[in-house]
């Protein structure tokens, strides 16, 4: 067939195949992006109406009373995520370092398996466990309990992504440091971790975004609160909880506010990720691989 077809015809056929494949791939990409933009668009359309400055700075009001907001929920979520990150990030990174650098043995296999199972545990079960361990002991629903529940959920994601990122650091980089007489622990901390920093940050952001929207583990831990709370041992409002309560309520204006709350939650998550990325990028050198 190639003998009968002229060179130009063959070229045209190749161009057509190339164009066709490009179109198919672009369509796939659009299909993947479509749900995301549909969700975002719907959120903006429905949520923007209830968004006023008062929504960001006021406490919730009873249904029918105008001017209520979710300021306490925003603050509560922020503090809880801070507690969760303070627990989940160091634990997750430590675990990932162990798995990648020292985990080629039975212990590594066991821990890796445990992390995978933990990743699959329904979030409400984690909430109940923390209820049993922290809330009952403390005799209080609390910000701390909510933070712990979310922190536990961050560990497997952070540790597995840290492990993957560290494994991608070539062995030759470790050898270079050992060859200079740098002790092994120092090599791990100052060379291997540092080389994988941007990947590890991506993993942390993934875990962060995932737990930021969690409602179930907070039901029996942080519980929610109509008022401000800045104490670790008191029940605390959280955006997802408030969205949940408002969305299932029978009041039209609360339903409206739930949409606005969801929009704020998404914006805050995207904003946090953006800020962290910017800060991380500032430390990157020209030409760094």
């Amino acid at each position: 067939m190639h003998n009968t077809r002229s060179g130009r015809g063959l070229m045209r056929w190749r161009r057509f195949k190339n164009l066709f494949a490009t179109c198919v791939m672009s369509l796939m990409a659009l299909l993947v992006l479509a749900p995301l933009f549909a969700v975002l668009g719907d959120l903006v359309r429905r949520g923007a109406g209830a968004l006023h400055w008062s929504f960001l700075v006021n406490l919730p009001t009873p249904p029918g009373e105008a001017g209520g907001g979710m300021a306490n929920g925003i603050a509560g979520s922020f503090m809880m995520l801070l507690v969760a990150s303070a627990i989940g990030v160091p634990l997750g990174i430590g675990c990932g370092v162990f798995l990648s650098e020292y985990g080629n043995n039975r212990y590594g296999t066991i821990i890796r398996f445990t992390a995978d199972v933990l990743n699959g545990v329904p979030s409400i079960v984690i909430g109940m466990t923390v209820y049993g361990l922290v809330v009952i002991t403390q005799r209080h629903f609390s910000l701390l309990a909510g933070g712990i529940a979310l922190g536990i959920m961050m560990v497997p994601t952070v540790s597995r992504s840290t492990e993957e990122m560290l494994r991608m650091v070539p062995q030759s980089i470790r050898e270079a440091a050992w060859g200079l007489g740098v002790p092994r622990w120092r090599t791990t901390v100052s060379v291997v971790l540092r080389t994988a920093t941007s990947g590890i940050i991506t993993g942390i952001m993934l875990a962060f975004a995932r737990v930021a929207g969690e409602t179930a583990p907070l039901l029996f831990t942080a519980f929610g609160n109509q008022f401000w709370n800045f104490k670790l041992n008191q029940p605390t409002a959280a955006l997802p909880l408030q969205i949940y309560t408002y969305a299932i309520s029978a009041f039209e204006d609360w339903n409206q506010q739930a949409w606005a709350g969801a929009l704020i939650l998404i914006v805050l998550i995207i904003g946090t990720i953006g800020v962290v990325r910017l800060v991380a990028a500032r430390g990157t050198l020209r030409g760094a691989a």
Binding site: E175, R194, T197
Partner: peptide, 11 residues
């Protein structure tokens, strides 16, 4: 070493 292995994250 055989292959140049500078630390990529360092100046």
């Amino acid at each position: 070493f055989q292959k140049p292995n500078p630390f990529p994250s360092m100046s």
